[in-house]
């Protein structure tokens, strides 16, 4: 905090008021309402609601469908996080190594970052389209009859590819800025001690990158869980029947398509708990093993 500060009986509250008002109305109110309505069974036509205790939660956990979607979400998150992190790191290391064309590579690799998930989903749909999709033709060449939108595994595959594609630039930006902040003196000292470039990277550069990697890990998990909504929504086109969807999409489907407000809220609360646990894990376990310079 600052050594010198203003003191005024009311000014700080005036400055904080707009931000706090927005947060209370649009964050705390809905969040509390989610928790509250997760204990109620609401009439779909709006004629009141009955208190049902934990039965909405019990329904969610007992349902085989929910279990399947949860498993898919875990696999999806794992795959997307792993591939987008490792490809982002690979490209960042290479972009850091080359001197000629560095700026051009950087601009080209970053430019895709801002493409919105639904746009990425739309482009992905076209590339995996039955009639015009080149990926489908390539797959057919290898004897894989790809039916995105009909076959569960094929759709999941397409979703992972699109989600990874969209996330690589983000990881690239952060890994590159992390790599560039590794001091030259450290690299030179390492270069004198060890000839193997890979070993130098593994034992010197990578530990120094750990804070960045750790930060990105959490961001990528959050991305796969929540921000991929647009991709999934465009790719399954409201026909979730046989298609893989994530837990967030299920919250949306049950709430807005199924009109099951209590069930949807209970799932929201379950996801809230997941996010809380992730945040705690982030502070308790992983951060301890990370070197900060």
């Amino acid at each position: 905090m600052k050594r010198v500060q203003f003191s005024s009986p009311y000014l700080p509250y005036v400055f904080l008021a707009p931000q706090l008002a927005v947060i209370v109305i649009f964050f705390y109110w809905p969040s509390v309402q989610a928790i509250q309505s997760s204990f109620y069974l609401e009439d779909p036509f709006g004629f009141g609601s009955t208190f049902v205790g934990l039965s909405n939660y019990a329904d969610a956990f007992a349902s085989a469908e929910y279990g399947r979607i949860a498993r898919f979400t875990v696999v999806f998150t794992g795959l997307v996080t792993f591939f987008s992190l490792s490809l982002g790191l690979l490209l960042a290391v290479k972009a850091d190594a080359v001197i000629r064309g560095n700026a051009a590579y950087k601009t080209l690799l970053i430019s895709v970052y801002t493409i919105a998930p639904p746009v990425a989903g739309l482009i992905g749909m076209m590339f995996f389209d039955q009639h015009i999709g080149p990926f489908v033709k390539i797959a057919a060449f290898f004897g894989w009859e790809m039916k995105v939108g009909l076959n569960y595994v094929d759709t999941a595959f397409a979703m992972v590819v699109v989600a990874v594609w969209k996330q690589i630039p983000y990881n690239f930006i952060f890994f590159l800025s992390g790599l560039q902040s590794v001091p030259v003196s450290v690299r030179e000292a390492a270069a004198i001690d060890c000839r193997s470039g890979f070993r130098r990277f593994w034992t010197v550069v990578l530990p120094l990158l750990a804070p960045t990697a750790f930060f990105l890990l959490v961001i990528n998990i959050t991305y796969s869980l929540f921000d991929t909504f647009g991709i999934i929504d465009v790719m399954v086109k409201d026909k979730a029947a046989n298609n893989p969807i994530t837990l967030v999409y299920k919250v949306y489907m049950d709430g807005f398509r199924g009109n099951d407000i209590g069930g949807s809220s209970a799932q929201s609360v379950i996801l809230m708990v997941v996010v809380f646990v992730l945040t705690i894990l982030q502070f308790r376990f992983i951060e301890r093993r990370v070197h900060y310079t």
Binding site: P30, S31, Y252, V275
Partner: peptide, 13 residues
């Protein structure tokens, strides 16, 4: 808590 998690109650509000 990202918006996606509290989407239904936000809509009701």
């Amino acid at each position: 808590l990202p918006l996606e998690v509290r989407i239904m109650p936000s809509y009701q509000v």
